[in-house]
Simulated assay, not measured.
Amino acid sequence: MNDEHKAHAESGTYAECVLCREPTEYPASRKGITLCPVCEWQEAQRNACSG
């Protein structure tokens, strides 16, 4: 288990998606932009098609 997963297991809180405010799979202590699985997938689709 890496440090990020340990921190999440201890706190039990999830970070909010920066686009839709839904809970993500990441701990609240994670730095940077966090996206929920749906927004992450949509963003990947936009990037794949912009090429």
Rank of each mutant, 00 (worst) to 15 (best):
A9L: 01
C17D: 00
S11G: 08
L35R: 15
C20M: 08
E25V: 09
C49V: 05
P27S: 14
E4W: 04
V18E: 07
A15K: 13
G12S: 05
W41C: 03
E16A: 14
T34H: 04
E4A: 08
E22N: 15
K31E: 07
S50K: 14
P37W: 09
H5C: 02
G12R: 02
T24F: 00
A9G: 01
P27G: 15
E10T: 03
R21Q: 12
Q45K: 12
E43F: 10
E22P: 03
K6R: 15
S29K: 11
E22H: 15
R30V: 06
Q45L: 11
A9K: 01
M1G: 04
S50P: 01
S11F: 03
R21I: 06
D3L: 15
E22F: 11
H5R: 03
E40K: 15
E16D: 15
A28F: 07
Q45A: 04
S29I: 08
A44T: 06
N47A: 12
S50C: 07
L19N: 14
G12W: 03
G51E: 13
R46S: 14
C39L: 08
A15L: 04
T13H: 05
P37M: 09
D3W: 05
I33P: 02
E40G: 07
R30N: 08
H5Q: 06
E10Q: 09
H8S: 07
C36A: 13
P37S: 13
W41N: 04
E22K: 15
E43P: 02
C17G: 01
T24I: 00
C36P: 08
A28L: 14
N47Q: 14
D3G: 05
E40S: 12
L19W: 06
K31R: 14
Y14E: 00
H5M: 03
W41G: 03
C36Y: 06
Y14D: 01
C20Q: 08
G32E: 06
W41M: 07
Y14P: 00
A7R: 11
